[in-house]
Structure formats: C-alpha cells, structure tokens
Nucleic acid binder design. Structure first.
Lengths: 213, 213
DNA sequence: GTCTATAGCGAGATAGAC
DNA sequence: GTCTATCTCGCTATAGAC
C-alpha cells in the first residue's frame, strides 16, 4: 500500500533521482505519521513524536515536509483513495453483483484497522469548515456518493433495480452504513461483527432494490 | 494527554443548595464548553477560550471543574443520553410504528447540529482504548445496540417482523446509518439531505422486516 | 541530510490576594 | 467566587553549524 509516488516536495528541490524509487527516510516518516495520526489524531500528535519514533529529530522531519499541515497532506495523498477506488470497482461490476460485493469492503477494513482509524479520526477532526483538510473530505464524500448513485441509476436504466429509489439518497445511506459500522467496530471490536452486519445490510439492500413499486 | 482522572477536586463540597438548581455561572461555562468542544473538539479547545467567552478567567473555570478532563466529564454527563433516550422511545412504540419513527431522529439532529457535532467529534477522539472517555462511548453504543436489537426481537416474537433477520446485526446497521449520515451531513450540509436519506432508509428497512422468508 | 540551539507561543495548573 | 501573577511544560518553526 505504500507506493512512493514521488509528489512535488514542499521543500524547494528534489533530493535524489526523480525516478520514484524509495526515499526511505521520507517513507518511514510518512508511515509512522499515518500510524500516529490514526492512534491519536492529527492535533494530538506532535511532529517530534513522529520523528522520534523514526529515530531522527523533529527538524529532520521538517526538512522533508516543511510543515505539519504539509505532512498531513502527504499522508492523506498517500493513504486516501482506497474508498473511492473501491466504489469505482463496484461501479465497474454493476447491478446486483455490485451489491453483493459490498461486504468485501468490510473485509478489507478488518484487515487494515489502522487505515480505517486514520480516516475515521481525520474526518471527525475536519468536520469544522475551517479545518485544515475539510475541503478534501467534502470532495471525497461527494465523489463517493456520486459514484454509488451512478451505479444505482445505471441499474435502474437497465431495468435491474426498482425505480422508486432515489439514487443519491441511497448512495448516502450505503456510504453511511459502511462508515458507521467502522466507527462502532473501531470503538468496540469484540462486540461488533462488522462483516456480518455488512452482509446482512447488503442482503436487505438487494431486496429493496429488487422490490417492485 | 491522558492525565485524566480524579485529582483532588478543588471544591470538596457543593457550592450551592444541593437541590440541583442553577448555579448560573457553572451552567454557563458548561454550555459554552459544550459549544466549543463541538466546534473545535476537546483537544483543540482551551479552557481559557471557554472562560473568556463567558467573561471570566480560566482560573474561575478551574474553580468550578478542577481540571479540563473533569469539565469534559461534566459536559458528557449533561448532554449525552439523548440518543439512548430516543432509542428507548422507539422501543416503547414497537413494531413498524417504531421503524416509521426513525426519521424523527434526523429531524432532531438537524435542529441541534452543535450537539451532533459534539458527539461525532468526541466519539472519534475516543476511539483509542486509552482515551479519556473511551469506556463511556463503548458502553453507550452497546446500550444503543441492545435496545434496538430488543425492539427487533420483540417484533419477531409478535410475528410482526420477519425472523430471518439477526437483531443485533440489524441494530448495529440502524445505528450506523444514523451516525454515518450525521457525519456526511455535518461535513457538507448543502449536499446531504439527511432527512430524505433517513426516510428512504426507514422505508427500505420496513420492507426488509416485512419480507417473508 | 541531519544536527544543536533557541525563539516564541499557548497550554493547564497552582498560590495567594481580595 | 473571582482575580492577578506566575510556574512549567510541550509544541511548531527558524537559523545555522557540520
């Protein structure tokens, strides 16, 4: 999951060959930052904590990323997009097969709790309009809803899905269930069967979409 | 930052008549604290901010609450419980009438965005096991799920609901939809019709619960 | 590229006057 | 009950040596 896409570095110039091969120190910092942001949130994680865990000083981290918000951007760029990519996979499948594939997201999430936690925490932290990454998450959810809504609308066009469903409302619901189950599961993994709940949700959803008016 | 826990509370005794009527200064501080925690989160709100907004110094606030974590406890005590109370109302109604009443929660939430934001932020902040209020929220969600699951199980017993539904999984789903829609709506109120989405969800859910095996 | 040193700020909390 | 004063700490960021 950690492809080092060699983005424009915030600091002035490139440090080595631009061919995209691992800048190991930078990648290490990125990885640890993502872990600590997931555990403690952005605000409650100091760049010194991150640097220390990697074994360098805070100033070395700043050499790579320039500032703490820039580090956050880098983390988000590297690790977000999984959800959107998954939604696009579903859309590519289409129809009831896509609905049946929804629980795969729960399975992915269970396999990567830290990634899930990272975004759960970041989204909540960026609810206020003035937050650093607020606009990023607004755009992300809009995209997510649009992709899923289009999947539903397409199924309605082909006659597979019932037409008495508002695609965009249903899309918001689907995204909401996945997110909400993530939250409950992160809080209390032992008491929440996220895979089972997602499966049962998908079944019910299939029934709703199949239903005649 | 989990310095938490009961240090010596600065005032060992109650300051006013024990009958619980308004200690206006204290109530004012509590109210403003709840607003600012909702806007900026717990960690990013200083007790000085809160005190200033009320027109007193930070030290006056500490006189009442002793410490910042203690203030958080007080805020949670005062303002949480709405969700549980709502779930209990639904359970008291029972059956399809209860399902039909679910969208009322969305209407309440729209009316009190700050309260909703407060708990969205607090839940995320308390995802890690060591967080100050982690256990509180674990217990809260367990209670929520139990109440809703019992509502479903009861409907199954009376024969109103289909029996091929696992009550606890469905309960987690219902709570998840409400939470997840809240998040999307808080992030992007203009693009999310939380009431419409909740209504459509409730309709689909009713269909699922009605369905025969 | 990574370090030491340090500026500069804002936080939470305590002590004690009134 | 509320204030002023102050302590101490942790944080981000900059400057400059090596």
């Amino acid at each position: 999951m950690s492809e080092s896409s060699d983005k424009a570095a915030p600091s002035r110039r490139r440090r080595h060959r631009g061919t995209g091969r691992g800048d190991s120190r930078r990648d290490e910092l990125l990885h640890v930052a993502s872990e600590l942001f997931a555990e403690n949130g952005y605000r409650d994680t100091s760049i010194a904590d991150i640097a220390q865990r990697v074994g360098v000083t805070q100033q070395a981290l700043l050499y790579y990323f320039g500032s703490k918000p820039a580090l956050l951007d880098a983390v988000i760029d590297e690790r977000d997009g999984a959800a959107v990519a998954f939604a696009e996979e579903l859309a590519a499948i289409g129809g009831f097969d896509a609905i049946r594939a929804i629980p795969a997201s729960a399975r992915r999430n269970v396999a990567e709790p830290n990634l899930v936690r990272l975004f759960a925490v970041l989204v909540a932290e960026n609810l206020p309009q003035h937050a650093v990454a607020h606009d990023h998450f607004v755009a992300r959810y809009r995209r997510l809803r649009r992709i899923v809504a289009e999947l539903i609308a397409e199924g309605q066009r082909t006659g597979e899905f019932a037409t008495d469903i508002d695609p965009i409302l249903k899309a918001a619901e689907i995204v909401a269930v996945i997110d909400g189950l993530n939250t409950q599961w992160l809080l209390d993994p032992d008491d929440v069967d996220i895979i089972g709940a997602t499966e049962q949700f998908a079944e019910g959803l299939a029934g709703t979409l199949r239903a005649r008016a």
